[in-house]
Amino acid sequence: MIEGETIREEEQLIASILGGNSQEFHALIRPYERTVYVMALTLVKNEADAEDIAQEAFLKAFRNLKNFRAESKFSTWLISITLNEARSRLRRKSAVPMESLDEPADEQGHVSPAVLVDWREIPSEAVERLEVRQLLQQAVEDIPLIYRETFVLRDIEELSVNETAAALGISVASVKVRLHRARMMLQKRLAPQLKQMSPKRRWLPWL
């Protein structure tokens, strides 16, 4: 089991760092640089802020490493720290209208997907096109924060439903509802846009 091995290696690294080999912290966090940055970026939607938050999150993780409890995964712990950093940054930015963390009024409502037929698979290589990346980034950033947090943890950071619930301090049932809404919002917006792009402009050179 690769994951089990990674966790054991991380535990050894953490023990070593706490034992005085602080330099090894560099190696410990290297696999998570992207994870932490993307998490911050999708929450605060600003590259400079996201980089600041990422640095702060890693520094906090270093300073508080002795408080890390091995019952959770290091990555999950790190993501929780990042989430808290991003949330407090959003709170502090009073000049910018703050997105509400409360349930939107239509919490009971449904999000209807975009109805279409003949979906043609968009291959992953398409994200090498800047215009496709921008469509995707913008669509994710435009999801209301309450749903975006869940979506990012679950579908971008690939935490389990239980880990997502724990990191956000909400129930598993809420994670599922919010995730479903976020995914439907993305489908509703992106499916027509992506579909429209594909046949006319020949941006899929392999077709």
Partner: peptide
């Protein structure tokens, strides 16, 4: 709808 949702999740 299912296929496009799955596809979009892979892309994001």
């Amino acid at each position: 709808i299912l296929d496009s949702t799955r596809n979009i999740l892979i892309l994001t």
